[in-house]
């Protein structure tokens, strides 16, 4: 194992759940406002996972008010993520679900396992 991998291990999370594109997840994010800290929950469908090691990221897409699509990308090992829970396992045939951006309503649904 090379030195950089060993170094990154120190910062990696060990208790990450198994999830992949197509899954519906809820991400609890720590948000600090002045001196207070609160938890915000962000829910949506994982449309991609990218990168490896400490630099791995995932993108979650949700449909907000007025049918506005919102996508947020998180660093998988970031300390601001308190927890990730998989709510539903999706059945998809692609690794990157960019096609969901062009679908609305019923067409944007994903088959579940």
């Amino acid at each position: 194992m090379n030195t950089l991998d060993k170094l990154e291990n120190k910062y990696m999370k060990t208790d990450l759940p198994d999830f992949k594109p197509g899954d519906k997840v809820s991400v609890s994010i720590r948000i600090s406002e002045e001196n207070k800290e609160r938890i915000q929950v962000y829910e949506g469908i994982v449309i991609k996972r990218q990168g490896s090691g400490l630099n791995e990221t995932f993108t979650v897409r949700k449909i907000s008010f007025n049918n506005v699509g919102v996508e947020r990308t998180f660093l998988l090992n970031s300390p601001i993520i308190q927890s990730i829970t998989r709510m539903q396992e999706g059945k998809v045939r692609r690794a990157k679900l960019y096609y969901l951006r062009d679908k609305i309503g019923k067409k944007s649904r994903i088959k579940t396992k």
Partner: peptide, 19 residues
């Protein structure tokens, strides 16, 4: 010099570092 990567600080920000 070993190489560069990014690590997390306590406040949650990722910083670009050289090892």
């Amino acid at each position: 010099k070993i190489g560069t990567t990014q690590v997390f600080k306590d406040d949650g920000n990722a910083v670009y570092v050289t090892a």
